[in-house]
Design a protein around this nucleic acid. Structure first.
Lengths: 211, 211
DNA sequence: GCGGTTCCGTGATATATGTCACACGGGCGA
DNA sequence: TCGCCCGTGTGACATATATCACGGAACCGC
């Protein structure tokens, strides 16, 4: 099946060998999702691995009572290591993936991930690099939760978020931030206000502008 | 070079194909470490990957000012996914690995990890399973830090620890627990005392007996 | 046994974070 | 235009955790 192969080619040229790009075009399933759409829900089974072509996706970890912790963001040419490994046992997913903005991606069936490892050196490299990055991300997340106080965590949060969306104006409510940081709305409101007073940002409804 | 090949054979039989076991015996470097010994220190370069034959090892993440967060434990036939990926960039390690008890392990040079992936199906399986387990461990750690209060965290901590060392009497000081949970000794002392009053455990110097 | 050291228990107090209650204002549909 | 809902700001208070200060108990080497 032919996807939007121009897009795919452009994204992968330089990273992957031509035969692999060909294969991805043949096998992968191209998809565009809008902001806020779910790619993965907890409880669903993961049978294919997404590679982000453009846009960004956040990966969250929900708990039993409606809280969620942000694990990491994915953006250009990233992939989700959890979904690479998640399926062998046939366990359902324990994470959530949500598009942060309009995002284009291509899904690769998990069995191909495995098969290509030995066929395409650049793929093997890609898979390993993906694992490493996600590990680093998770460690950074643990650092942040374990060692930093909320105000520092909020700063790191804002930094990461601006990085992942490549912009300085965040479309987000205090409530949403609070949930991703597993705290409450009032606390975030106060801390943001503080940061505004210090001149680090400007607040308005549904919007945070970093200065 | 011939390591303690009986030990290696016994440990790997059933998991790995004979040719791979042979190869591991030929290439791997067998080592025994005592309780408390460091396998990896932050800042050192990782050039080989440890596979635990017996005993257990804890993997920690230090911060800038002397705190440490526990990432996960490794025990029989586990391996450390971080060290598999850690080296490609030639970045120094950002983690610490310490033997929890007398531990026997075998070191595989990182380049072999890569090479064997395509030569030995059981090895590929092993590497992927390792990644998956470590991911699950890290997610559990994040869950615990993000969602649980200290008393619950302490319970999960004790549970994991008893699991990893396969015993109900832990040789550990309150100070050590506190550091691994990134809190202070007094707090842990109080919480432990509470658990003792409830009849969950018995305390004595350097020792916690789970009931 | 003695002195020093390490570990543990515990009160008092400080700080950070969570929770409740409520007011305000803007957008938006009726 | 009115009323309503959602997002926000903020005081007052509750709770969890951190810190300080200290004393006592167990162990260790001499």
């Amino acid at each position: 099946m032919i996807n939007d192969s121009q897009v795919v080619n452009a994204a992968f040229r330089g990273s992957f060998e031509p035969a692999l790009i060909e294969e991805i075009n043949r096998i992968g399933i191209y998809q565009e999702v809008e902001e806020g759409e779910y790619l993965i829900r907890p409880g669903s089974y993961i049978r294919s691995v997404p590679i982000i072509l453009s846009g960004s996706v956040k990966i969250m970890r929900p708990d039993a009572v409606g809280n969620e912790a942000l694990l990491y963001y994915l953006s250009g040419l990233d992939s989700c290591a959890i979904s690479m490994t998640g399926s062998p046992d046939n366990k359902p997913s324990e994470i959530t993936a949500i598009a942060e903005e309009k995002t284009r991606l291509i899904f690769i069936p998990v069995e191909k991930v495995d098969e290509w490892i030995c066929r395409f050196p650049t793929w093997k490299q890609f898979v390993f690099r993906t694992y490493q990055r996600r590990f680093d991300d998770m460690i950074a997340t643990i650092d942040s939760i374990a060692f930093q106080k909320l105000d520092e965590r909020l700063l790191t949060y804002l930094k990461k978020k601006t990085q992942s969306c490549q912009c300085t104006v965040l479309q987000v409510t205090h409530e949403e931030i609070a949930r991703e940081m597993a705290t409450s709305r009032e606390v975030i409101s106060r801390l943001l206000k503080q940061l505004e007073r210090v001149g680090y940002l400007r607040l308005s409804r549904n919007k945070i502008e970093i200065l």
